[in-house]
C-alpha cells in the first residue's frame, strides 16, 4: 500500500527567490527517510512539496517532478486536495482542532473525504487510528473530551492518528518532536518505527540522533551561503551518512564542526 516516491530535478521558488535547487532522490516504500541540515536549508520546504502544502504560501512554485508510484504530483490532471489525502502530514507543533473532541479530531480527515460514514465505521476507524498511533489506551475513556486537553505528546500522537485515519500512502513529518519533551519524543520515535511497517514515512528533524535512531535513509540538505538556494548534498543509508559520509560538508555537520 505504501508507495515509492521519485523526485526528479526539483527546484522550488518563492516568487523570485530560489529556495531549493535540483533535488533528485528516490524514497523507498515502507521505510523511514530523514532529512537533516541547518536551519533555512530548505528541508522543510522540500518536505512540503511532497504533498503540495507549499502552495499555501502565495507565489510558491516548483519545477521538476515528484512521482508517487509513477504518477506525477504536479501533472495536469492532479488536484492538490487529492494529493494531500494520499500524502498525510504531521506538523512541528501539535495542532488538534480545538473545537473538536478527540474522536472528531481523529475522524476530521475521514469526514472531509467521505460522503458518508456509518457510525460503526466511525467507531472502528477511530479505534484503529488511535491504536495505530499508540494512543488508544490513554484516551479510550474520554473520546468526547476536547483534544486540546491532552498533553503535548498525546496531542502530537492524536495528530498522527488523524493523519493515518485517512489511510494515506505516505506520511510526512515536519520536525514532529521539536515541541515535545524527551519522553514524548521517545513515544513518537517508537511510533515512527511502528508506522514503517505500513507507511512510507518521511521526517524532517533538527536532531541528528533522532535521524540516526529512526531512519533507514538520510538526506543532508545544506546551503552554500545565505541567499543561495538549498541543495541536497548527500542522500544515502543512515548507516553510511553517519559513519562514512562521502561529502566533507556532511561529515562536518554530523560531527558538529559545522559553521
Amino acid at each position: 500500500m505504501s508507495k515509492r516516491i521519485d523526485v526528479k530535478d526539483l527546484d522550488i521558488y518563492y516568487g523570485d527567490f530560489h529556495a531549493v535547487k535540483g533535488v533528485s532522490m528516490t524514497i523507498e516504500p515502507r521505510s523511514v527517510t530523514a532529512f537533516i541540515g541547518p536551519s533555512g536549508c530548505g528541508k522543510s520546504t522540500f518536505l512540503r512539496t511532497l504533498n503540495r502544502m507549499h502552495e499555501v504560501i502565495p507565489g510558491a512554485r516548483v519545477e521538476g517532478e515528484v512521482l508517487i508510484d509513477g504518477q506525477n504530483l504536479y501533472g495536469k490532471g492532479v488536484d492538490p486536495v487529492d494529493v494531500r489525502r494520499q500524502v498525510g502530514m504531521v506538523f512541528q507543533r501539535p495542532n488538534p482542532f480545538p473545537t473538536m473532541s478527540i474522536k472528531e479530531n481523529v475522524l476530521a480527515g475521514v469526514r472531509l473525504n467521505a460522503r458518508r460514514i456509518s457510525s460503526s465505521a466511525a467507531d472502528e476507524l477511530t479505534e484503529r487510528a488511535l491504536r495505530g498511533a499508540n494512543l488508544w489506551n490513554e484516551v479510550k475513556d474520554r473520546l468526547d473530551k476536547p483534544g486540546s486537553g491532552l498533553s503535548g505528546g498525546q496531542q502530537q500522537r492524536l495528530c498522527i492518528a488523524r493523519a493515518i485515519a485517512i489511510q494515506p500512502e505516505v506520511i510526512l513529518m515536519d520536525e514532529p518532536c521539536s515541541a515535545l519533551d524527551p519522553i514524548s519524543t521517545l513515544a513518537i520515535e517508537d511510533l515512527i518505527n511502528d508506522l514503517k511497517s505500513d507507511y512510507t514515512v518521511v521526517i524532517v528533524t533538527h536532531n541528528m540522533q533522532q535521524a540516526a535512531r529512526v531512519s533507514d535513509k538520510t538526506g543532508f540538505f545544506n546551503l552554500k551561503a545565505t541567499g543561495q538556494p538549498g541543495q541536497l548534498v548527500e542522500f544515502d543509508t543512515t548507516q553510511t551518512i553517519f559513519n562514512n559520509p562521502s561529502q566533507k560538508a556532511t561529515e562536518d555537520y554530523i560531527s558538529g564542526r559545522f559553521g
Binding site: 504533498n51 489525502r85 498525510g88 506538523f91 507543533r93 482542532f97 473545537t99 480527515g109 488523524r162
Partner: peptide, 26 residues
C-alpha cells in the same frame, strides 16, 4: 492559527472545507 488551517488542508480539505473545519469553529 495557521497550524489549524494547514492541518485541515493536509487532510485533503478543499478551501471551503478548510474554512468550515478550521476557520469558522475558531
Amino acid at each position: 492559527p495557521r497550524l489549524h488551517e494547514e492541518a485541515a488542508l493536509a487532510l485533503g480539505a478543499t478551501k471551503w472545507e478548510m474554512i468550515r473545519t478550521a476557520v469558522l469553529p475558531f
